[in-house]
Design a protein around this nucleic acid. Structure first.
Lengths: 247, 247
DNA sequence: ACAACTCTTGACGCCGCGTCATATCATGGG
DNA sequence: CCCATGATATGACGCGGCGTCAAGAGTTGT
């Protein structure tokens, strides 16, 4: 039993090492700069050993992406526990994503790489649901929040509106916004001062447009953001936004 | 002179042939299924000849993407000539994108493939501005429309709002929405009936949120869409949405 | 000490990209 | 009509990366 466990632990350690080196290579040298031989060389294992862990190069990258998504999901899950009105808790999800992006900017890039058709294309299809699991979880939370808002009367749907549409809109703004920031759009041309703030802002405008109370004109959401950072992400906020000059 | 021209024309023809075959291969067999040898074989030219046209495989794919972007830009440019209030003309851009997506769904997929980091990564950097040119053009049109709306009084910016933000929001919804439709998001899970309509809808909600007159509650934008299709894209609409059973 | 078993290795086969020496073709002058 | 000269096309080749697997190193149990 203990021996079994130690072996498993060693394997896990080794896998972590592979992933850590792979991550560095991917970020420093790009997709084509990441090669299985290089990983083997830098970890001082052989190539055959890496293939005991990952069926192919793409699967390795996918695993990197999955871990980063899981990490983000944890932050979001914590955010949604914030004690407040549904729309405030929606803001908390935004804060979670914002913090995640600031703390781990590289992860978003890895996710972009992973999203490339050429990666997914080579993975046996049965691994892919696993990949989307955390996205689905986030989606469920979003819809859940919208439904709560409806239940408590904060949001009254107009004829033709649906919770799915609202969720889709918020998702699209966030996703499209981050994609733009990451370089798919000519952002430097459209010179926004703070693209992250613009994403937040537009989500609020959309929320107001749907009539989701309290509207941003009748509530101090900046204060809400402060509270969320203080109460839910104190440690992360200190790291992400700096805590003065104290060590 | 005429000889020179005939040669150029032949070269162009051949390039078109390469691109046409490449396009088919890319769509049928994916990124990894598209190989330079295969293109040479199917066109009955040699591989060396293909390399007279394209410096590398990625450059070829990039050219495919560029052409498709240019085509979309043409539709958008036509859309923006629509005779109406600025917000109606913004809708016309949406209609153009919608029509383009319906007429050439494959192009969007090619653009996705092209967007993959692994493609861009290998292109000598001096070709990339060229790529973004049409995106920048679209962006300029969007900002131009927002400014027109401000100039004619249809849109009164609240303190803190900027034309750039509005443009960014609309862009993000559209881009993120299409990305979601193309598979980056768990769309089948969030079961929307018509994702395309949802994009439209959310753009309207955003426009309303910014107070861009006429609001969707005080104007029949469905009628505007009909007019746009009839007046600006009669032929394309017939093909895209079917024109009854007439030949 | 040795057998049986597990884990690790790196040389190898294959494939696709991109090159370049060679072959083929076109043109024009003798 | 033929050959020289330059332009164009070709595909065999080199290279590098992926993924495999037979052989070797290490471990465990007796």
């Amino acid at each position: 039993m203990t021996i079994q466990t130690r072996k498993q632990r060693d394997l896990r350690r080794r896998e972590d090492l592979f992933l850590q080196v792979a991550r560095r290579l991917l970020l420093e040298r790009g997709f084509h700069g990441l090669t299985m031989d290089r990983i083997a060389e830098e970890t001082e294992y052989s190539k055959g050993t890496t293939y005991l862990h990952f069926g192919c190069k793409e699967e390795l990258i996918l695993e990197l992406g999955k871990r980063s998504r899981r990490q983000r999901l944890e932050l979001i899950t914590r955010g949604v526990t914030f004690d407040g009105r549904p729309r405030e808790r929606m803001v908390a999800i935004g804060v979670a994503v914002d913090i995640h992006t600031r703390l781990f900017p590289d992860d978003v890039r890895i996710w972009e790489i992973m999203n490339a058709e050429s990666i997914i294309e080579k993975i046996p299809a049965d691994r892919q649901p696993d990949l989307k699991a955390s996205d689905i979880a986030v989606n469920d939370m979003l819809i859940g929040l919208v439904n709560e808002a409806i239940a408590c009367g904060d949001l009254v749907l107009r004829p033709g509106d649906s919770p799915q549409e609202i969720t889709f809109g918020l998702w699209a703004i966030t996703d499209g916004g981050f994609a733009a920031i990451l370089g798919n759009a000519p952002l430097e041309h459209l010179n926004l001062r703070d693209p992250y703030a613009a994403i937040f802002k537009n989500c609020h405008v959309l929320g107001d447009g749907y009539g989701w109370r309290p509207l941003s004109t009748e509530w101090d959401y900046d204060a809400t953001v402060e509270r969320i950072r203080r109460e839910v992400f104190p440690e992360e906020s200190r790291v992400a936004f700096g805590g003065g000059e104290a060590a």
